[in-house]
């Protein structure tokens, strides 16, 4: 029997959509296999960044698109509509484009979906657009038969113009890693809700548009902000792995500095989930040059969405591509989650 060449054999599994290594392999080995590199000086699909950036005159046109499926569509702290607007606004912001010019929205609805729910989702999208100071300028609607789709699927695309671009690969040894607030809120809230775990206590998603918060950080530091990513599916662990690998540095995290709500800590202990693996929908992880870290931290903490911002680690030359957690007792490698997070018994 011949050895298996990669995970990309046979059929696509749910793990290929979970934001970790399997998904990156799917994109690299199948979707981008025949892709040609983009015109020089642009950020194209081969960069596998949060979006694309095309040079237009003296500025950049940043484009991103994302599809949203979430069961259930309404969850504590938000809904699929708020998620779809925030996610795309945040992908633009992670490229440094903090003024989303316009969004598009495609909706695919399962036959039998309640009109009242659709209205709620619409209202929620509009509210999120107001927060991000953008609007949805065009869209598309399709309906599919009962059972052909799980409720509703949203796709949003966003464009923005920007004078500068921040990639997810600009880290070098000595840089600091900053997180804009508590981790794991979205992942644990949705998981507890979906599996009807019967938790009482405010487990709430953090879903929010981050363009203003990111703008504050960029304003404070000029060129001190060197890499950004939103730690969504796969959590902080996946985001940092990707940043570390692309930048060719190791990342050492100080566990004691990780902002974590009591509720999230308790739920993750009960369910055996590593909060580093749980999704965030309203947080950014930012790589900052050491001399700029105080200014960036102060600017973040002055914003309502960044009050709990914290320096959580730094970049080192050793072990490029690895993320190491210093627990105060010892050190361990941070793994990447594989597939959907599930409650554990052991």
């Amino acid at each position: 029997m011949s050895p298996l060449p990669s995970m990309m054999t046979g059929k696509i599994g749910l793990k290929h959509g979970a934001g970790g290594r399997a998904m990156r392999e799917l994109i690299r080995d199948i979707i981008l296999k025949e892709a040609q590199p983009l015109r020089p000086g642009s950020v194209g699909p081969d960069a596998m960044d949060d979006g694309a950036a095309l040079r237009v005159g003296d500025q950049w046109l940043v484009i991103t698109t994302d599809s949203y499926v979430i069961n259930p569509p309404f969850f504590p702290g938000g809904d699929i509509g708020r998620l779809a607007v925030s996610g795309t606004v945040n992908d633009l912001a992670m490229m440094g484009a903090t003024e989303p010019f316009a969004l598009t929205c495609g909706i695919i609805i399962e036959e039998g979906f309640a009109a009242a729910d659709l209205e709620r989702i619409r209202d929620s999208m509009q509210a999120a657009c107001r927060e991000a100071r953008t609007e949805i300028v065009t869209g598309d609607t399709k309906v599919m038969g009962n059972g052909e789709l799980d409720g509703i699927v949203l796709n949003t695309a966003g464009i923005a113009f920007s004078r500068r671009i921040v990639s997810d690969r600009g880290l070098r040894p000595g840089d600091r890693i900053v997180i804009t607030g508590t981790i794991g809120d979205h992942g644990l809230a949705v998981m507890a809700h979906r599996h009807q775990l019967g938790f009482e206590g405010a487990l709430e998603s953090d879903v929010a548009p981050l363009n203003d918060l990111v703008a504050a950080a960029l304003e404070a530091a000029a060129d001190g902000v060197v890499a950004m990513k939103d730690p969504t599916r796969g959590g902080l662990a996946s985001a940092l792995h990707e940043m570390a690998a692309k930048s060719g540095v190791g990342v050492v995290l100080d566990e004691g500095k990780l902002p974590l709500r009591d509720q999230v800590r308790a739920a993750s202990e009960l369910l055996g989930i590593d909060p580093l693996h749980a999704a965030n929908e309203g947080k950014a992880v930012i790589g900052v040059r050491p001399e700029a870290v105080d200014a960036v931290l102060a600017a973040l903490r002055a914003h309502p969405l960044g009050i709990e911002a914290e320096v959580i680690g730094s970049c080192v030359e050793e072990r490029p591509g690895f993320v190491i957690l210093d627990t105060g007792f010892g050190r361990r490698l941070v793994s990447e989650p594989e597939g959907e997070l599930l409650p554990r018994i052991c």
């Binding site: 055996g272 210093d326 627990t327 007792f329 010892g330 050190r331 361990r332 052991c346």
Partner: peptide, 16 residues
């Protein structure tokens, strides 16, 4: 006990 291994791994105890 898998939970011992989990705790050893979680806190990075093998390193010490």
């Amino acid at each position: 006990c898998g939970s011992h291994e989990q705790a050893i791994a979680k806190y990075g105890l093998r390193a010490v």
